[in-house]
């Protein structure tokens, strides 16, 4: 990666934004490099959409600095800066009486993009067969694809996607992330808000958690999970030679608490990552003690719940 590619496309420093009676963002620091997908997560009302609008220049920050491609952004974006953006708002109904093709032709002319790009983006989002139909006949998922298509017009360098997979079916979601993956390899930086943690987990390069007006956690998901020292959940059933005394002895040695779920005859153990390997070894090496072992390592959902509200799931 060259130095220009690794320089952040977007950089926010101590950005603050308040509305009458509410300080939504207190101090936001965030950087996104070319080819990076950053997932912006947080509960409703934490300011994810506000943050995107600040980047786009639809709102002006009260304080702080926003740099786009290293250039300081004033309260309004220049047309050159706007040309770097591709934006997909949370909900967009478009124009029901226009066809998909007319819609993109219209929006492409406003982006001053090449008309040849229109067919290209239709192919990218898989709407080629529906481009002649009026938008009022589109399903929610098709409208979402059309929204993504318009965001891709004009070859943007920074995509801002506000809950982009809302309304997409599972295959649509899969295709959507394939598109994002391709764009990343082309050096497009992506800031995407989402509540669908399972989707993000294996796809985002970094996570930024918005909580209380600040980015309370930022980094790669693996790093954050590692730092948070989230417990692994181990489930098993009694083996043929099960002995409660032996089990209690092992658990005592590894300072692990057990919980027994009677109706499924399942034991549930919660252990720290540092203990996990030794505990599993001890359980498995005792002949016939356990059966049907399932190990759940901590995931993004656990991380989110812990970081966001201090809750733990078992």
């Amino acid at each position: 990666m060259s130095s220009s590619q690794s320089a952040p496309i977007l950089s926010l420093s101590k950005v603050r934004k308040s509305f009458p009676g509410k300080e939504v963002l207190k101090s936001i620091d965030l950087q996104i490099a070319a080819g990076e997908l950053v997932a912006l997560v947080g509960n409703n009302g934490q300011g994810k959409t506000t943050l995107m609008k600040l980047v786009l220049g639809l709102l002006a920050p009260d304080e702080g600095k926003i740099l786009i491609h290293g250039e300081a952004a004033t309260s309004s974006r220049t047309t050159e800066q706007k040309a770097l953006f591709g934006y997909l708002p949370e909900t967009t109904a478009f124009y029901p009486n226009l066809t998909g093709q007319e819609t993109l032709r219209y929006l492409s002319s406003l982006k001053q993009g090449a008309p040849s790009r229109i067919d290209e983006v239709f192919a990218i989002v898989g709407l080629e067969d529906a481009k002649q139909y009026r938008v009022k006949t589109y399903s929610k998922g098709m409208k979402q694809r059309l929204g993504l298509a318009q965001a891709l017009l004009g070859n943007p360098k920074l995509l801002l996607l506000d809950e982009p997979t809302n309304g997409l079916d599972p295959s649509g979601i899969h295709e959507f992330y394939q598109i994002l993956s391709r764009l990343k390899t082309e050096g497009v930086a992506i800031l995407m808000s989402s509540h669908l943690l399972a989707e993000i987990e294996s796809r985002a390069d970094a996570l930024a958690l918005l909580k209380g007006g600040v980015i309370s956690a930022h980094g790669s998901i693996d790093e954050l999970i590692g730092t948070a020292e989230l417990p692994s959940i181990i489930r098993f059933q009694k083996g043929q030679k099960f002995n409660l005394k032996t089990l209690d002895q092992i658990l005592k040695q590894h300072t692990v608490e057990k919980k027994y779920i009677e109706h499924s005859e399942t034991f549930v153990l919660t252990c720290q990552p540092t203990n996990k390997q030794a505990l599993l070894l001890a359980l498995l090496s005792t002949d016939g003690l356990i059966n049907k072992l399932i190990v759940n390592d901590p995931g993004l959902e656990q991380l989110f719940l812990q970081l966001n509200s201090g809750l733990e799931i078992t």
């Binding site: 639809l58 047309t79 124009y95 318009q150």
Partner: peptide
């Protein structure tokens, strides 16, 4: 504004 296209168009590169 109600269709959600106003913010979108405001983000486009024209005055």
């Amino acid at each position: 504004h109600e269709r959600g296209t106003l913010d979108l168009l405001k983000s486009y590169p024209f005055n």
